[in-house]
């Protein structure tokens, strides 16, 4: 086996380049090296000006998302040997403004996320002395999958609707809203509905399904969105048919 592999890395220097330029680096092809290790090698030994984000190196912080050979990947969980003999093309995540080299600006997501109130909403907060809000394992099972999201933005990067429709709330934000909507302790579904059931919410999604295909944590945002469409549409139609009764029911629970 070859001892080296070529990384073709997208370089973008704001104010200098008008668009990214590809630059090639030779890095050691070691069995346990991820793309991120290759990039760290470049930074430490070949070119200290290369910029990229990373933190935990173990697939949980969600910082090191990049486009590897056209596919959105966590660069810490994608191994050099899987791409041998190379070359490996490393670009920033698509659908986000590139700040520098492999660093993207995810402010858009950070502004959208709080709009869906991704926390347990209670009508009346009971004091701590009264104890925890209890939950059975079955109730946990309802939403646990959606709580695995690490905000790595791979789903936004794979979503064509988000690239065409920047106002679209997007896969992770909606999946996280469902994570709370489906939580037995939560009472905020009705508050979230204004945002989720708006044209920029679930209705813009056309179920391409790539968000779920690229998710490194096995979350199914596409499924969450379709399930929410069914819930929201059923509710809207109920309200249309019997306005008064359903409004009272809605204020109680939904998912």
């Amino acid at each position: 086996m070859a001892t080296e592999i070529t990384l073709e890395v997208a370089r973008y220097r704001p104010g200098v380049d008008s668009e990214p330029v590809m630059q090639s680096y030779q890095v050691p092809l070691r069995e346990h090296w991820a793309i991120l290790d290759g990039l760290t090698y470049v930074k430490d030994h070949l070119d200290g000006t290369l910029s990229f984000r990373w933190s935990c190196r173990m697939g949980i912080c969600g910082s090191c998302g990049m486009t590897v050979n056209g596919e959105p990947q966590l660069s810490c969980a994608t191994f050099l040997t899987d791409y041998a003999p190379g070359p490996i093309r490393v670009e920033p995540l698509h659908n986000f403004p590139v700040v520098r080299d492999l660093v993207v600006d995810i402010d858009d997501f950070m502004t959208k996320l709080p709009k869906v109130k991704p926390w347990v909403v209670r009508e009346v907060q009971s004091p701590v002395e009264e104890g925890e809000y209890l939950q059975t394992p079955e109730e946990l099972d309802e939403y646990q999958q959606f709580s695995m999201c690490i905000n790595c933005m791979l789903c936004y990067s794979a979503c064509p609707v988000y690239s065409l429709e920047p106002d679209f709330l997007g896969p992770a934000a909606i999946a996280l809203a469902q994570r709370y909507n489906l939580d037995s302790r939560d009472e905020g579904a009705d508050e979230r509905r204004d945002v989720l059931s708006s044209p920029e919410g679930v209705w813009a999604c056309t179920f391409v399904g790539e968000c779920s295909a690229v998710c490194p944590k096995g979350v199914d945002p596409a499924g969450a969105i379709q399930r929410y469409k069914l819930t929201a549409a059923t509710q809207s139609i109920k309200e249309l048919l019997m306005p008064r009764i359903s409004r009272r029911l809605n204020s109680r629970s939904q998912g």
Binding site: Y12, P14, G15, D17, S18, E19, P20, H94, N95, P97, V98, V99, D105, S163, L164
Partner: peptide, 9 residues
């Protein structure tokens, strides 16, 4: 700050 926006074909 100048950022790069990838065009959508």
């Amino acid at each position: 700050m100048s950022v790069y926006q990838r065009p959508v074909h």
